[in-house]
């Protein structure tokens, strides 16, 4: 497949995953709400435990549904959205680097086959990781995966910075980026701090922070809907711009990107 086809396939796959995540959320909530309403009306929901032969008790069931739908279900769906975002951006970087492996090192000059300065290489790889690889494609593939893995532990602003210095998409815009940073900060807070807002969240979310320290991250439905909409818009805009770039000659590298070191990594 061509670079353009690869990009389009990734974008389609990402949009499909977003649609599936939305359907999962909305259908699960509707099903739970139906049961909640039956419980409120005192109607038996007809669920029998085959081991004990007992009907599901409706006591406490109604309020449990509230927790399932507005906490556990929304948080599960939100985590999936964050995974989709990460896999979209890192997937885009992977596809680009496979097409243009020279972009692994922005100081490499394809015209001369040399680096432009002698400072530390952007990527340093232990020889032991290369010796078992048989050809250049395998070595480059290994380097690309190492770079992707390295980026996956970094903040989204680093992902977008890395993309921008290679592809120059101009998307997402600053306002969208701020919201995406907040999303990732909220996800990290749920994942690593039981949802209690700490300094990490405040720092990572920046101006788009929705909570202050010691509050609890709440993923409510309007926020979830806004996240879906944001990811759809961002994915679509980035995919269109990427396809446009992939159709033409490779864009020239940005000149003003610092001197040596890892300013572009």
């Amino acid at each position: 497949m061509s670079l353009r086809d690869d990009l389009r396939a990734l974008a389609d796959q990402t949009q499909d995953r977003l649609s599936e995540a939305w359907a999962f959320y909305i259908h699960c909530r509707q099903a739970w709400r139906l049961l909640q309403q039956l419980a409120r009306k005192g109607q038996p929901v007809g669920i029998v435990d085959l081991t004990t032969k007992r009907h599901l008790l409706q006591d406490e069931f109604e309020s449990r549904v509230q927790k399932y739908t507005t906490v556990q279900l929304t948080e599960t769906t939100f985590r999936e959205l964050c995974r989709i975002l990460e896999e979209w951006v890192l997937g885009l970087i992977r596809i680009w680097l496979i097409a243009y492996p020279e972009d692994l090192d922005l100081e490499f000059d394809p015209a001369t086959g040399q680096r432009r300065n002698r400072e530390r290489d952007e990527i340093q790889v232990p020889l032991s990781r290369l010796l078992h690889l048989r050809d250049c494609d395998m070595i480059l593939g290994g380097l690309i995966e190492a770079k992707i893995r390295d980026l996956s532990y970094q903040r989204p602003e680093k992902w977008f910075q890395y993309l921008e210095t290679r592809m120059q998409l101009g998307s997402p815009d600053l306002a969208q980026r701020a919201k995406l940073h907040e999303m990732k900060a909220a996800r990290d807070c749920l994942e690593h701090n039981r949802g209690v807002v700490n300094r990490d969240y405040v720092n990572k979310a920046g101006a788009a922070a929705r909570f202050t320290e010691s509050q609890h991250v709440q993923i409510d439905e309007p926020y979830l809907i806004a996240c879906f909409s944001l990811l759809r818009d961002v994915t679509d805009a980035m995919a269109n711009k990427a396809a446009q770039i992939a159709s033409g000659p490779k864009p020239p590298r940005k000149k003003n990107r610092g001197r040596g070191k890892s300013t572009a990594s």
């Binding site: 109604e62 309020s63 449990r64 509230q66 927790k67 739908t69 507005t70 906490v71």
Partner: peptide
């Protein structure tokens, strides 16, 4: 108003 300890009132 109904309430759940974790989810809050509804």
């Amino acid at each position: 108003v109904a309430t759940d300890e974790v989810a809050g009132p509804y």
